[in-house]
Design a protein around this nucleic acid. Structure first.
Ligand code: SF4
Ligand code: SF4
Lengths: 132, 132
DNA sequence: CAATTACAGAGTTAATATATCTATAATATC
DNA sequence: GATATTATAGATATATTAACTCTGTAATTG
């Protein structure tokens, strides 16, 4: 029960991209180096963010990654969901009645956390965070 | 990023114990059978709850597990912490300033979840939940 | 003592996270 | 168009953790 390192990398990368230009992309080489992670692995992670539509990639010389649209509405939850998936944190194979008290409690707790992550937008932290 | 099955077993077992007698212990055999898990494995999990002080065990014939004290103040969070540990969900190796915005957001989100789990006591669900 | 039950520790298996490697596709520059 | 650069995809490898098993020991009952 821990957030993956991939999520950590994704969050840091996104913060860098928010502070970077929205036209000139940033190469994965640079993004990876500042986080101490291999470029190929980070690229694999970022591809998921591309597919989620929050960033876009540019191949070729001077290529890299940049934010796709208005950075203002990208939330922490968006990023986390793109990396970790959206499945419930508490899984149960059985279905004992439509109203299972345990699941209700766990799900509500999870939603409390997600609500906060959804309220916090990337733009809220931009510029506050300088370096990884 | 998922709660372990061990946590699932612990929660279900605790709910059963809340509804059971506080003097006559329930054998792990019975507790395990109703959840479709092996007795030895469940026993290993329950030992952690014993060490956390929320249940107590009785060896020998007619032995088993029972709640240790007043069941009213045992919360979901108590159980989860006993099984999953109390470490933060978002780990970061570095320390960039005393106030890291990322960690602040993640920690606060986690606390929102924990707050709900701490507010929900076992007694709140007792009797509502009949069977695993 | 004999049966039952929890406990402890080592060991096993399965699943997942964390990467790496190689080849391919796209793009810019010359 | 050729070449260098960069992202992407897929397969593979390694490490870590979860999930479970096995075996022996200790405690309790009768
Ligand atoms: S009681 Fe709820 S959580 Fe437990 S097994 Fe049934 S449906 Fe799942
Ligand atoms: S910015 Fe914060 S979360 Fe990121 S590496 Fe530094 S201390 Fe950790």
């Amino acid at each position: 029960m821990r957030f993956s390192k991939a999520t950590n990398y994704a969050l840091h990368t996104m913060l860098m991209l928010v502070d970077a230009s929205t036209v000139k992309p940033v190469g994965v080489q640079q993004l990876a180096e500042s986080q101490g992670v291999s470029p190929t692995y980070l690229s694999k992670i970022l591809t998921r963010l591309v597919k989620a539509g929050m960033i876009e990639s540019v191949s070729g010389v001077n290529g890299g990654y940049r934010l796709s649209r208005t950075k203002d509405d990208i939330t922490f939850l968006d990023i986390i969901h793109a990396i970790e998936g959206t499945a419930s944190l508490f899984e149960c194979d059985f279905v004992h009645g439509t109203e299972c008290s345990i699941q209700a409690v766990m799900k509500e707790a999870e939603e409390k956390m997600e609500r906060h992550l959804q309220q916090t937008k990337l733009a809220d932290l931009a510029q506050k965070q300088t370096q990884v």
